[in-house]
Amino acid sequence: MKIAVMGGTGLIGSQVVDVLHAAGHEAVPHSLSTGVDLLTGRGLAAALEGAATVVNLTNSPTFDEASHDFFRRTMDHLLDAAEQAGVGHAVILSIVGADRVPALAYYRAKVLQEDILKAGPVPYSIVRATQFFEFVDAVLSWTADEDTVRLPSTPLQPMASADVARAVAEVAVGAPLQGTREVAGADVFPLDELGRITLKARGDERTVTTDEDAGMFAAVEGDAIIAGDGAVIAPTRYRDWLVV
């Protein structure tokens, strides 16, 4: 099966390509570096020629209101080109609980991306994943100084990017879901505790202070970004991943 992977040179995309190749599929990575620009549509027609499935893993360069325009334009171009090319399946990666955190502009933008796909002309699948293990360092950096990291106690259910990639690849080679599959990590952590676990494992002597108003995840209420019943639970545990 030929599968076009938009954003195929990024963290998730490159791993999706590797998983698909290992399974015997013709997975072709596309990105700005390969001459494909979803914002303008440049290179899309050629990239989708002969593809049975397109996986869109491109991401907005910002988390603010500008992300809405990014997802609107890129999805409109992608779906128009996919319909013209006769692509039979379009897959995107979204976020568990995105529709339950309206206070975050980026989460609203991901819901917009989902809605455009659902209303579009191409059979579709949406994979919603929880936060990546690899994202934890960035989260800690947002509210840190030399001595202290301030974090809310927001519950997170993080997972390894490798597990996300496998989940996306599995959906990409199957029939369109015409719906959403949730994937999540094996364990739920309060974010402040996750910070303490991370710093201790790395020998970082900074202190984590619980601050319910600190950082992006302070806008998340309750268990909004925890996977629901029926989610696929990934095998990799955070503490094991930290020590590898």
Rank of each mutant, 00 (worst) to 15 (best):
I3L: 10
M6C: 07
A27R: 04
V28M: 05
L32H: 05
G41I: 01
R42L: 02
G43E: 03
N56G: 05
T58E: 02
S60W: 02
S60T: 02
P61T: 06
T62K: 13
F63Y: 12
H68F: 14
F70P: 00
F70Q: 00
F70E: 00
Q84V: 05
A85H: 00
L93C: 08
S94E: 04
P102V: 02
R108I: 03
D115A: 08
I116H: 10
L117Q: 11
V122Y: 01
I126K: 05
V127S: 02
Q131P: 09
F135T: 13
V136E: 04
D137K: 12
A138G: 14
S141F: 13
D145I: 11
T154H: 11
T154E: 10
V164A: 06
V164R: 07
V168Y: 13
V171Y: 11
V173D: 08
V173A: 08
G174F: 12
G179A: 11
T180K: 11
R181G: 05
V183H: 09
A184C: 14
A186Y: 03
V188K: 09
F189K: 07
P190H: 11
I197L: 14
E205P: 15
T207Q: 15
A224Q: 10
G228F: 08
A231E: 12
V232M: 13
Y238W: 09
V244K: 15
